[in-house]
Write a protein that binds this DNA or RNA. Structure first.
Lengths: 194, 194, 194, 194
DNA sequence: ACCTTCGGGACACCCCGTTTAT
DNA sequence: ATAAACGGGGTGTCCCGAAGGT
């Protein structure tokens, strides 16, 4: 399914490659859609939140935590990630206009992801390490959207390059979120990476 | 096809809604794939380049040109765009891993789009209105990726909001590309939009 | 399929007339070709060998056994056989140049048929009731080819006549295979049937 | 068409390989069937009769004439003939049960072929070189049927062998048609070819 | 009770022989 | 005489239910 998308993935193929029979599937799920829902809830949600939530909850500057996660995103970007992109994003792009059940579930995961980021940003603001005139919710939306955009571009190009560029852009953006006193300390001359 | 994706779109349905018969289609194209290729070349390419290339070629500050296009992106974002996202991006996400013919064609359009942006940025650098330590190619990749990410997020949310957020982020990013003298002239206090 | 040939026979028609659905068919066979292969192996092979092998294996003069089978061929030649010819031959003529799988399977059945005849002829030679200077393999090829030719001619003419003529010719030929002492005993005057 | 049969031969393919457009075809023939009819009348009929009629009309022993034609049949049996068989026979086998127009036309050609043989045989009887108790019409049917059977067997086997065997059988048969005085002159010991 | 084989049609894409504008 | 258009039907695949074995 990673390869062809949900709709174009034959149940027969899925089941054969999973070593499961059709009877077993329909005993548990009842339809292909419900299987897809379960994938979102049981696979994609833990995968996304497991990567982002713990670092963001840990004490310390949340901007640095995000930067470290972004670093890991680049490191983890193996061949499959490049060829097939972010599974959550793929499903979202494909199924959102088609099936409302998918859309709401995927939006739920995305919302939890953004909420984790936004909460961390707000904590940073409370702790004085993030500029106070930043809208934490918008920042979370921007960060996640740029990442998904970067995954998509990398998938299309079959190369990490575009994803790296987006991550660099995000890092630059994150630096700009620091209070001016920090910002001054970091001479603008270092920011030519964009 | 805008709705269900390429693979899930029945040819019969496409033809019926287009008022075309199967014979007519297969006289011209020979396969569903070739029809898709033609859509990329004859519809999506002109749509994308027609929106971006002319303003970027006009004399004047290219950053301002991009900002104006982005403004128009928001304005144009009607219901369909929100529900179905950027057709080029949709096709790219869906078909890139499935069919190499699609992937290369779509990457071709994206490349032309990015080239137009990069050329404009370089012209701005030559004219002294864009910071010289900026990699024009990377900037173009970043801009396009953020836009596609924003379209995708808007599509999933069924709302312009996320797209607007991404555009705001891009505007902020564009301002940061201006040479420092300009940057100083624009007080940082105005940039809290993020 | 008897009527139109394998390629021109619509699966839908076959299935409808057989009271079977496509799901059932493709559960067992996977393709129209494989269904055809199974027909050759499971239907035509038993039909041909069931008619020829047992009489040829029974003790007694094999030439007389063949003559009796030929007599039965004429008797069995009902309307269908006349209109549609020998199914094995029809398939062979149609599919041999088109599909190698068909060709080898059909040749296999033909070979078994010829082998049964040739073995019987050799037994007759060992028992002294068939001329020793006869090539049993060639005799088998000739007999089967004349029969198929006769079926084809009868099918084209929509009449048993040509098949009967060929059978008469074969009977004449079989008589000539008897050792001379037998041959002398059967006055040539009886052989004007040709 | 030689390869796949009439029904399985696409008009598009035929026309493309012939360098003709569809309009031209339908200007002359009006349907695929009529094109097939024309092939029978204009191509197959001359081909068959051109090979058999002239030698049979020439003065001399008709049995020897037939033997010479049979010799040429073997000589002419190139690869195509072996792979695709006798075109007339192929068409007859395929189309006789399907389309009455084909059947009658093909039977017409076959009848002319048999008539030519039968007439020659009767001339031989009148001239005393063919046994008088032979039914010339039946002999013609037998000869043509054995030949078609031999072509079919050769096509299935992808080898001349079976055709040669059938021709040998026919030669043996033709010798048996000579009046006894001739037959005695040819010691039976020479006839072990079968 | 759990699972598997088998079966059911609807529909996918494609290609066919043919006819209508040009 | 041609290119374009026409739909009906080709095989194969889809997702799913139902009968039946363990």
């Amino acid at each position: 399914m990673v390869h062809y998308g949900f709709q174009a993935s034959s149940l027969d193929r899925i089941l054969r490659s999973a070593g499961v029979t059709k009877g077993a599937l329909y005993h548990h799920f009842g339809s292909k859609l419900e299987l897809g829902y379960a994938v979102v809830e049981e696979v994609l949600r833990p995968a996304v939140l497991g990567k982002w939530a713990p670092p963001l909850l840990r004490p310390g500057n949340p901007l640095d935590a995000i930067k470290q996660i972004l670093q890991q995103v680049i490191t983890d970007a193996d061949d499959d990630a490049l060829r097939y992109g972010s599974p959550l994003n793929n499903l979202a792009q494909e199924m959102s206009p088609v099936d409302e059940g998918f859309r709401t579930r995927i939006q739920g995961v995305l919302q939890e992801w953004r909420d984790a980021i936004a909460a961390a940003v707000r904590r940073g603001q409370a702790e004085g390490v993030v500029r106070r005139n930043v809208d934490a919710g918008k920042a979370a939306i921007f960060i996640t959207a740029v990442l998904e955009g970067g995954y998509g571009a990398a998938k299309g190009a079959r190369a990490v390059g575009p994803l790296k560029v987006c991550v660099e852009g995000l890092v630059y953006y994150l630096e700009a979120l620091r209070p001016r006193v920090y910002f001054r300390g970091t001479p603008a001359a270092d920011m030519e990476l964009v």
